[in-house]
Design a protein around this nucleic acid. Sequence first.
RNA 1: GCGGAUGUGGUGAAAUUGGCAGACACGCUAGAUUUAGGUUCUAGUGCCGUAAGGCGUGGGGGUUCAAGUCCCUCCAUCCGCACCA
Length: 858
Amino acid sequence: MHKPYIAKEIETKWQKEWQKNNVYKASADKKNNYYVLEMFPYPSGKIHMGHVRVYTLGDVLARYKRCSGYNVLHPMGWDAFGMPAENAAFENKIHPAIWTKQNIDNMKKQLKAMGLSYDWDLEFATCDPLYIECQQKIFLDFYKNDLAYRKEAWANWDPVDQTVLSNEQVIDGKGWRSGAKVERRKLPQWFFRITEYADDLIDSLDKLDNWSNQVKIMQKNWIGRSEGLKLKFKIDQRPNDKIDSDNIEVYTTRPDTIFGASFLAIAPDHPIAKSLANNNKELQKFISECNQIGTSEEALEKAEKKGFDTSIKVFHPFEEGEKLPVFVANFVLMSYGTGAIFGVPAHDQRDLDFANKLKLPVKVVVKDKNNNYENIDTVAYTGDGEIINSGILNGMNIHEAKSQVIKLAVNKKIGKKSKQFRLHDWCASRQRYWGCPVPIVLCDNCGIVPVPKADLPVLLPDDVTFEKIGNPLDHHKKWQTVNCPKCNKPAKRETQTFDTFVDSSWYALRYPAPKSKEPIDKKEMLKWSPPDQYVGGIEHAILHLLYSRFFNRGLKKTKYVNFDEPFKGLFCQGMVCHKTFKSPGGWVEPDNVELKGNKAFLKSNNQELEIGRSEKMSKSKKNIVDPMSIIDKYGADTARLFMLSDSPPERDLDWSESGVDGCWKYLKKIWGHFHNYTPPKKNFLILKDAEEGHKKIRREIHICIQNTTDSIETFRYNSAVASIRKLSNLLLGISNNEKSLILDQIILEGWESYLIMLSPITPHIAEELWKLMNPNSSILSQKWPDINEEILKNKKIVMAVQINGKLKNTIEIAPKEIVNKSLQENKALALDNIKNIILNKEPKKIIVIPGRVINIVL
RNA sequence: GCGGAUGUGGUGAAAUUGGCAGACACGCUAGAUUUAGGUUCUAGUGCCGUAAGGCGUGGGGGUUCAAGUCCCUCCAUCCGCACCA
């Protein structure tokens, strides 16, 4: 009897051994350097299955590349600033720094138990004083180069707690702790000038060949470039003198529909609206209602369209005598275009909803050929068509009309062509404690004064309390008070800290030299950067990845780097999901559930539970499986194998206990096999003398090697696992009485290749089994198996024979017959069942696709 | 609301360019061995049908000798929406 497979034992053994030998040390050479990076985690306390998935994916790639002869940089660190640490401080009276440190220690231990191939010497956390100092240096350079500036911006304001809330802390328009209705307030905040690069950020997407297409499309739409017209409407009668303009300027992307305009709408915070509100209580009330919708775009767009008639009228620019009413409307954004629009209900859904609500006229100006365009009542028509009811524009299509109106407006000096972006500048400051301080002093005499680089870092004070509501830095008078670096008079530190997206916008460049005094050590960085492959969740498709792309451009402008894009390749993996279980008392953890057939019961009292569909693992639904319990029970290799086995990496993965069990049984089977296997003395030289029967087996082995390699290269890891398993099925299926000297060598070649290909996936068991065959070498120093092209060349080709496109039979041909179409046709026609179907009919057509299919059309 | 994606057996899925749908697994069924420690092995398994055969890739329509793959349309689910990270 052989040794039982006790995963834990061999996994800790090899992890210790590899650590001792420092096998994952990154050392760059002149060429063949490869940088694999996975998105670093927020240290929330313990790892979850999402981490197991993304880090396994990255690890397979890192190990595969190392095995294929590359020098690999594969680092890990911590996105250590953020709100949860402050929440923990508030709830459990623990300092954010201590809480974060504890979490990092614990999670590091857990990641190590997964057997990931990181060079831990390169580890850092974004809350390290050195990282803070470096980031502040970069910020000062950005500020000097006009990439950062301060201006007023909206924030969610809790009027009871007297504090700023994140969108996450606003639930149904109410503060999460106070329950008070949340308002919007303007505060001075710090911005990065990302819009400066808007065009470049769109145009350069084309160059990112190794980025997933969907992310590129999402970013393009997010930036939202549009070409349109800024157009002035003359005000008929000014209601009060405080309005210092005779015009209201609107921005539109549909100048062609100008004759269908039935109103103007301005944003609640448009200067004219504000000015009117000064002596209009009703309007004041309306504006403050608008301010209660919240700051998220989703909330604004979903809110019921509401408007307030200002009683101002404006003249239609092209239609003599026509006047349009001006409304303040809750769906118009001050931050986009000019903060004012003209409304064309027939051809814009929002405008139509609004017009219907306020009983405004709907005038059709674009003819929809396919539908009844006379009556537009609830659905606006936004497509192309012939312009009607529009005087001089009649008969044009919308594109002709668009340029015609722009031309007319420019000639009349009431408009100009304008390019707009949906993207707005990045608000990167937060009114919170646990973040990197903005290194600025606010002085009554000198205004905004950067902290001199020599005085960095500006570190957070330790002695803060979280009992008082609001930003602890605001309450810390001693920390705030400094002398102005310019005039030396008493001044105040900026009490805002950076958005954590700032921390994660440049961390990849820090790994090559994480202890350098310089933010980015050029020499070391250039050996590796930018990362060849970045791996992370699709939920970061826009913000993190767009901010990183901007930041990299900023770093180029400030001469820290010499390339534009932060990541050469990008791969986004799907989420980890699990079924949900519900009892009348609420959600139930999978750990407390017993499955019998397709029913689920509560372990404690056998009560039957409702089984819900699979959803993203989340605390609220309690459908969480703790990775550590899986590693304890089955081992890291099983967990890793399961993560890769069934679902393609980019798709959501359904966690299933039986799937994990299957992986474990498989590893156990392989374990058993190798413990009973006595390999022959290696002599691969005799393989070239193999006869056809043996060659066939060897060919199949090499087909598996080829398929596995292709699948790994293209991130189809589930297919890679399938072909690896196919290879073991094949080798295990060769019966003992077939064996011979040559076949024994073929089988040995097969098993060695098998273990090497398995090793990036399940490194521990692969090493253990490798040592059984080769006690003096490590699997980590083996080369990825070569594909023997010569062997693959002579495989038989199977072709489908179809009648009217339906498969009826197959034929086999030799590779050299692939060019001989008539031979293939004749072979197909000679088949008995084909003859029977054709009988005496004359085929109308016979299509031969060489080497693939013969289709006989009757 | 806007933007992006996904949809194939009982389940997870596979299928270079349109060219044999269901590889590899899980589950299930039957049988064998009795497993010594979470058994293993063999056979079967898309659906309907005794069979011949027919039907099958979310629904409907189309292009083609040929459609999971291309086009139109509808439906369902998931992700993001700028202060969660």
